[in-house]
Amino acid sequence: MRLGNLERSIMEALWSRPGGALAQDLSQELDSRPAVTTVLTVLVRLTRKGLVRRERVGRAHLYFATGDRDGYVAETMRAALDEAEDVEAAVSRFVGTVSPEVAEALREALREAPREAPRKTPRETLDGRRDVGEHR
């Protein structure tokens, strides 16, 4: 599923050309100078994945990116922030959004907590001698 470098640079080239691009243009424009046939193969693959669409112009095809980059970035962020159940079920988030009250309560919980984890040696809690006693 990991997108190859060529796939990605073709997508980036297409994003920079909202008016569409021919396979020839892409093959000449890309730094790695891929053959036109290679570019076409990748374009077909990207079309199948729904990332690229094409329009017939004369005897060639003009290729377009179906979505813009910002939209895809937004989608990857939605995986972290959106409350929709399908999105939420698809990923394991570290922590989602919380209400402002809970954000405050979280900071509070951390402030009240002992500075050092109980497993650490007392020497490490120089700034909080109180804490050492608390864990006895």
Partner: peptide
């Protein structure tokens, strides 16, 4: 605590179950 993003405008209301879980 650092990563818990306070929800923006319009997302207020009672703390959801997920919020409490973070706490």
């Amino acid at each position: 605590v650092r990563m818990a993003v306070p929800a923006g405008e319009g997302a207020g209301g009672a703390p959801a179950l997920a919020d409490v879980a973070v706490l």
